[in-house]
């Protein structure tokens, strides 16, 4: 294995199907259905996907969803706003976990 996270691997995502075809087919159906426009537009769903990719730190998904977002008429400026929204929520989540420390301290300290 030459390297982890090789961008050429993205084209081989579907190779995983060979190991569990029925589960893979179910995933593909679910994935396609989840991204069909509904109450949310396709573009809104792509932005959700991009934000999840960012905070999940998946290079494949960030690469792929950047291209998809550009093809939805968004620009890197739009994506910058999305990544800051996602990152700030991630920061807030980290801080919210501080409540555990806050509560633990209250319980055991005099």
């Amino acid at each position: 294995m030459a390297a982890y996270f090789d961008d050429a691997d993205l084209a081989h995502f579907g190779d995983l199907k060979q190991h569990a075809p029925e589960l893979w087919n179910a995933f593909e159906r679910y994935y396609a259905a989840a991204f069909e426009p509904g109450l949310l537009s396709k573009r809104e769903k792509v932005l959700v996907g991009f934000a999840v990719a960012q905070v999940s730190q998946c290079p494949y998904c960030i690469d792929s969803y950047t291209q998809t977002a550009l093809e939805q008429g968004l620009t890197i400026k739009h994506l910058a706003e999305a990544m800051h929204a996602a990152a700030s929520l991630r920061a807030g989540i980290a801080l919210a976990h501080g409540l555990v420390a806050h509560n633990a301290d209250k319980k055991i300290s005099m």
Partner: peptide, 9 residues
């Protein structure tokens, strides 16, 4: 498009 990608809808 401003790059190597398809136009939006």
């Amino acid at each position: 498009p401003v790059g190597a990608f398809l136009p939006p809808a």
